[in-house]
Design a protein around this nucleic acid. Structure first.
Lengths: 395, 395
DNA sequence: CCAGTTTGTTTAATCGATAGACAAACTATT
DNA sequence: AATAGTTTGTCTATCGATTAAACAAACTGG
């Protein structure tokens, strides 16, 4: 049944508009709101009064006069409540506490020694509980918990499959909700990252973007029209398993020649095993950071390998460009640390291969939130949900 | 500036709801509308009166009683106006006249002998003019013209690039608008086809689908959330130029190993040239229909070639499945005629290669509108635009 | 033939937005 | 210092759309 219109709907719409205007332009006066929104001055006054009663807005005092009575400036009360965002990685948990603007207030980073299910869950609970305790007093308290997970997540918050965690059909949302009695949302890591970069990072003010999370595997989060695209069943964007070599290597997913077999951190590390340097000293741990340092020290072999990974990344990105015609592609997650070595090859390949009408108006950027995109994105979903719930209860 | 809410907005919303309810469920009574929409009976009466004044709805007389006063049944006046849809093909023009429900009323199919620009335009004008003259009298007349073109079309109706027509930067929308003084929209052929199949064909009642137009090249139209996805600049979905062999053949687009080099009609015909039969009789024209007949007559070589094309189609479709997680993929345009030979290979490849969570809930279908998807889709855009304009002018 | 049901209109009340009047607070000019 | 003009935010009367409820008309079934 569709929602029909009545006066409550009007008020809800206009209250949202006023609230969003304040959030995006504070400090701002009632008169300015009236002017920018075209709402009547009286209407604005009345709605602002409601928002002040809701504790979401407050008056900061008189502002500068522009030749008449001084305006009363309004501020968004960004500490009316707090949200928690979690990046549940393969061997770490990053938990952040943010205010209602999405600004990080506190964070906890834990390395997972024991990756048994019970141990991971208990570490997760521990870090969330600590942040809840550390959260400043506020009228609304903790408004929700958002969690990003490296795997396929169904809409209601069940992790269907997370190979690197060894999880299958884990109703994470329910488990966490039960423990903390708070609204919980669970997302795919790349989707959360896309939301994070879209709201706070390199993708601010961009309506259509694709966030490519290059870690052990490759995941993508697709923002269309300022909204995350979810697909029919809630799990879209597995472009890491797009074929770029139809008769290529076999992939665990059952397909052949998947992109992430050629352009991910895992692909890089496999390739790197064949380099001559490895045999030299076998006691060291040859991880991504080691190779980054080697490249920095001028190791040609390693640098060539980074270039190659960049080229393969470029090939998959070209497909994304031709398919989605986005304004922006953001490369994030661990492999983004190799920006210095992969940026040029990526751009060269996309420049040479993408359709001219598409590449002309498109940019490629690297994550500007670094390791935080996923956790901040997850937290922001809780904030968004809180606001939209609030707006429904306009009473 | 955002649209703020007032009583006019409410009325607009509710009028749309009532109108849509009538369109989708006619014949229907005022009482039934009130029940299904949850709008008050009085409100429904008032809005229906407006719609009757607008000539969009009319009373058909008393319906069956269900134990009380007999209801007055309402019908959507689907002949209150007409729309024109054009499929501007490489060597043909298909023009259809539809009523406001999108039902075809008349159609003209012209084969293009001379493909010079002026000749194409004059043939186009001719066929549109004929249909306008043949359209029955109606209170609203022709509400708009929609045109589907095999090329990249910018949002305002300029054909940026249509290689098979030899067009570059043709402001088709303006040219046609000038001639007929009617609203004109221009679309990419695959996008129009997607809209057509979504509204009237195999994709009815499906929120998320991808229409794959397999002709000389491969184009895709993407319906997300019942809406055509357009990309940042209005031209998305060039998945025909997705790479499936990163070191494959060179493509005219500048890339290598594009999907359409392996799975389109052109790719098939190129391959077919190498078959032994061709040398046998060189006076015949070896086009797709010839090979379809050969396959039907049991020619193993040709059948094997269709199987191969099906397999390559399957590889690209797998990428679409993993990327978009659609409910449905519809294969249309000329190559869909080979359904009998390519259907099994396609399904086998997707079954074996797509991610399990995605393929489980996804179907593959072939166009059910045949050659009409593009023209009907283009016409329907005009109808949709007409309705939404009308709703804005709620007086 | 009458009681009960269904349909669609009418009426009174409610609620939110708007235009415009207004008072308060301020600046600039003389 | 006085005054004119401007800006801000509130208040009031009015408008318009929805709703609940009353109502009349039309119909069914026992």
């Amino acid at each position: 049944m569709r929602i029909t219109g009545d006066q409550y709907l009007i008020k809800k719409i206009n209250k949202s508009i006023v609230f969003d205007t304040i959030r995006q332009n504070h400090p701002i006066s009632r008169a300015q709101i009236s002017e920018t929104t075209n709402l009547n001055k009286g209407t604005v006054s009345s709605l602002v009064k409601d928002l002040i009663d809701d504790n979401l807005v407050y008056e900061i005092g008189p502002g500068e006069s522009s030749g008449g009575r001084r305006p009363v400036m309004l501020l968004f009360n960004h500490v009316a409540g707090f949200a928690i965002g979690v990046d549940l990685g393969v061997n770490y948990i990053l938990t952040v506490l943010t205010d209602l603007e999405g600004n990080p207030v506190e964070e906890i980073r834990t390395t997972l020694e024991n990756i048994s299910f019970d141990s991971v869950i208990s570490t997760l609970f521990q870090s969330i509980r600590t942040l809840i305790e550390r959260a400043p007093d506020s009228p609304r308290g903790i408004v929700g918990i958002g969690i990003g997970v490296p795997g396929i997540v169904e809409e209601k918050g069940t992790v269907l499959f997370a190979p690197n965690l060894g999880w299958k059909n884990v109703n994470l949302s329910e488990i966490v909700k039960k423990e903390f009695q708070l609204p919980v949302t669970v997302h795919n890591e790349a989707n959360a990252g896309a939301i994070g970069e879209h709201l706070f990072g390199a993708g601010k003010d961009t309506k259509n973007l694709v966030y490519v999370s290059v870690g052990i595997g490759i995941g993508t989060g697709i923002i269309i029209n300022n909204d995350l695209y979810k697909g029919a069943l809630g799990f879209s964007g597995e472009m890491g398993h797009s074929v770029i070599e139809s008769h290529g290597k076999k992939c665990r997913c059952g397909n052949r020649g998947c992109w992430e077999l050629y352009a991910s951190e895992r692909a890089f590390l496999e390739q790197a095993k064949t380099l001559s340097i490895d045999s030299a000293d076998s006691t060291e741990e040859f991880n991504l950071d080691w190779y980054l340092q080697a490249a920095n020290e001028g190791n040609d072999e390693v640098i060539r390998l980074f270039h190659q990974a960049g080229e393969y990344l470029g090939i998959g990105l070209t497909n994304i460009v031709n398919t989605f015609n986005p304004e922006l592609i953001i490369i994030g997650n661990r492999f983004a640390k190799a920006e210095k070595w992969i940026s040029q090859p990526i751009r060269r390949i996309v420049e040479n291969r993408a359709l001219p009408y598409h590449r002309g108006h498109m940019k490629i950027a690297f994550s500007s939130l670094g390791a935080h995109s996923c956790a901040l994105g997850a937290a922001s979903v809780s904030i968004t949900n809180f606001f939209s719930d609030m707006k429904i209860s306009v009473e």
